[in-house]
Amino acid sequence: MHRLLFSKTADAIWTSHLDVMRIFQRAFLRAHIPIAHTQGYSPHPFVSVILPLSVGTASQCEILECTLEDKEISFQETQERLNQVLPEGIQVKEVYESSRKAKELTYLQARLELCYDSGIPSGASEMLNSLYSRETLEITKKSKKGETLLDIRPMIQSVQVQDHSPTQIWLDTVVCAQNPSCNPLFLVTAIQTYLSQLAPDFVRCSREEVFDKEGRVFR
């Protein structure tokens, strides 16, 4: 099995998970890079992106799985050819072979940019630091089945709070990526729940890196 490490930035962050897979299926054809097809009545090129990304979140570390069929085309060339035919904001950073199972991916590191249009409220960093040091951090999670209470504290590995500019606080966090998974934006939900006076006017979220159980970079 082959993997492509790619980034999703700029306006491409508004593309959905399913559409990203469609974009790659077409890009492989445009780049004349054959990949294996699914079997069955209606065969189609098989691609799979591990860890679906929410619409609106950027990423430096998306991983797409597929099987490259033409051994004559090097990984380097595959990367270059794909990058010439991908839409703005989607760029392949690395092409490689891997036998690691997707389920070994355990943690993800994300950056949350909290924007305060009229300046960071005083004492915000300290309050945020103590918020994330609580023993439990229950938020209301909305799903199709209704609302459930979820304690996200056990799923947060670390949070670093820094005043990035007079109007922005950045949170760099490592959270559980799957089984169970914690959407980094839950950290913002926690602010809205416990410190509503610190609720930011706008948040940008970016996935920065993925790790295995031992904390090594996952590829």
Partner: peptide, 10 residues
Amino acid sequence: KPARYVGGEY
């Protein structure tokens, strides 16, 4: 469907 509103397609 915010992708409707941003352009940037191939």
